[in-house]
């Protein structure tokens, strides 16, 4: 598997670290309540088809990326910088 980092170009999957579904990037604000925290931390759509995820190009430019992937074929459909790329999200 190869991931094309928008900053560094195509790189081996081993340079990247996986965090999880892209909901990680949308941390609820203070006072959001238990349900919002539960949904953010724990609950997942967990699709069999296309899904958006957070990966970090840890062994490269260290930018956080939104990778859109097919979970059954592992085909990578797009790679974009995460909002505020570079800041650790979780």
């Amino acid at each position: 598997m190869r991931i094309t980092c928008p900053f560094c170009g195509p790189r081996d999957r081993r340079e990247f670290t996986y965090l999880g579904a892209d909901v990680w990037a949308e941390a609820p604000g203070p006072g959001a309540g238990l349900d919002a925290l539960d949904a953010w931390l724990h609950l997942r759509d967990n699709p069999t088809g296309e899904g958006r995820e957070l990966w970090q190009h840890e062994g490269g430019c260290r930018a956080w990326l939104i990778v859109t992937r097919n979970m059954t074929t592992h085909e990578i459909l797009s790679v974009d910088p995460a909002p505020g790329a570079g800041g650790k999200v979780a």
């Binding site: 081996d12 069999t48 990966w55 059954t72 592992h74």
Partner: peptide, 13 residues
């Protein structure tokens, strides 16, 4: 393999 997957096979790394 550390990333979400429904493929019943793994990756080489």
């Amino acid at each position: 393999d550390f990333h979400a997957s429904y493929a019943q096979r793994g990756n080489l790394p």
